[in-house]
Write a protein that binds this DNA or RNA. Structure first.
Lengths: 184, 184, 184, 184
DNA sequence: CGTGACTCTTTAGAGC
DNA sequence: GCTCTAAAGAGTCACG
């Protein structure tokens, strides 16, 4: 029977909530215990927490997120020697890729003129120039590991952000994902 | 001139936010400092925080809040020897008061039969009985300081919550306050 | 066998944490559901939350807390017609009571001269005067429900806080409670 | 003059805190306004927040953080086609680099046998094999953009985490940074 | 289009 | 000193 006088109902609500709070605290304590165990095993708790956050995303979300971060980082000059990932390149070149139908393969063409060491400033200038002449970010001529690769990226992105265009769609997250069917 | 390329605009936004965050942190640190000063002066920080919260309410809000708390406390048997305040009595008897036009003055009539000490259970029973016979909570016959006063309150409130009625409006907060005219 | 290679151990930790997080979220959702149920039944969710907080305290803690709040309220002039509770009076008079051995009973002596209506300011002055002449806060001559009762309280407390003394122990919470024996 | 009675001091504390809270709220509102402006300009607010967080770190912290994240990601099989960054490679090979004195340059040696397309599983196996034969993670033979590059990374890292060794120091953050001299 | 609820993030406080 | 927890604030979403 459902209680229908206010005092008893209030009491019932309060007690149910209290019981659930106890349960939740117990689970929380278990979480803490496992975290502490992991920490004492030598793992970094913060990084583990980050992994758990990322694992909660779908692959698409995760990739879009990190691509966006890299794009913004490049624009703000925060690459610091870590060039954009292939993922970010793909994100920025999304539409062009569709149009041209070619993938990332044409980037494996280390032009001889960039094979020898050049200064970061020069690489940056080359990146900017590349953007202006319609090259895509995936056409970065410097191979992985080359310190000039990041500089070229920065130059390209900076130019891409400086040409007076409005903010292009690559800077935005995909608007929404259709909700998966849950319980009605 | 408004910057109209995305990189420069992004940079501007980020820097403005960062500057404001610094400002906010400074203010927060000042708050912490004052709180700590107060604490070392011997005041209880939590109670001070509570006072600040209450001072942020209007008098009406504050009174309604504490009256509601007391009403719920009484229903849950948490009065523990601290009888309901006049404020709570007024809240619970809001409507009756309008109808009868009398205030709290008729409560200063310690009936002779309750003047001598009785057990808490008996006081509780009297309170419940009083509710059933249509008495208002302000008619508690026990004077302030009398340990039976709280018990009578509890009896009255418990009965008021047990009579099968739906939850009466006294249990709810006044729905909305008309917003005071701010800057347009 | 305990896994002893880092990859597998990391994976195990992450999965255990994830599973527990799911559990915790489920419990949290149940809490939300019950709260929402209570709300739709007509109870005020905030007040319920407050009750749960208070029920988590021991009686002593709760009484000390509310007594402290009232003391601070009185000092800040926030009583607004709700006189201090017996509980707060007891708290403030803790030590004197031990010394004198008398309880609250000597307060049921509405002196004839205060029986007729006086102005709040006058009541306040009487309270201040009472403090100066060594009277205790429990000796408030105005009965419950009398609007002058709160004013007298305010006068007494204000005077008690203005006499140049350092902050007395009544303004502090009892330092610590010895922890009850839990599971080892 | 310093107030030395408790009531006045309490009042002073409360008012100072309240004033600061108002200030803080104002700054907060300005932050909200700028964020909203940025959002309407087409930037992603979350990513901006992330950038601000990262800009608050030193370069070293940021690089260590992201390197650790990638290492953990690789171990958990979360690379998903995004190979480890040069930064992460450097982190993992920190000590070896000191010993061998060579940088990342010896990785530009795409062995002919890996130049043609192979399956992810095969690339993974090659990575694991490479670890077992003492190769460093920087010796990934697949060039940037090659889908096999990530798989090789995963294989290498998985093997590095599976060989029964205790968790190596690369998995931990650098213990502490000596605090920069602040105001005394 | 405005409002209200819910979630998440951040931050301050308390304990080991 | 560091971590964890809890509360407050902000942001987003959905609904009226």
């Amino acid at each position: 029977m459902t209680l229908n006088n206010s005092q008893a109902r209030l009491f019932s609500f309060v007690e149910r909530i209290e019981r659930l709070i106890v349960e939740r605290r117990e689970v929380s304590e278990q979480i803490t215990a496992v975290k502490s165990e992991a920490k004492h095993a030598g793992f970094d708790p913060k990084v583990i927490a980050q992994m758990i956050k990322e694992r909660a995303m779908t692959d698409d979300e995760r990739q879009e997120w990190s691509a966006l971060c890299e794009l913004y980082r490049a624009s703000l000059g925060m690459l610091n020697g870590t060039p954009m990932s292939d993922n970010a390149r793909r994100h920025v070149s999304r539409e062009s890729d569709e149009g041209r139908g070619e993938g990332v393969d044409d980037m494996f063409d280390p032009s001889p003129e960039s094979a020898h060491a050049i200064s970061p400033a020069e690489a940056r200038a080359q990146g900017a120039e590349a953007f202006k002449s319609g090259k895509r970010v995936t056409e970065n001529p410097f191979p992985a590991g080359d310190p000039s690769r990041a500089s070229w990226d920065e130059g390209w992105c900076a130019e891409a952000g400086s040409d007076g265009m409005d903010i292009p769609p690559e800077w935005r997250r995909a608007p929404k994902k259709a909700e998966k069917g849950e319980d009605a």
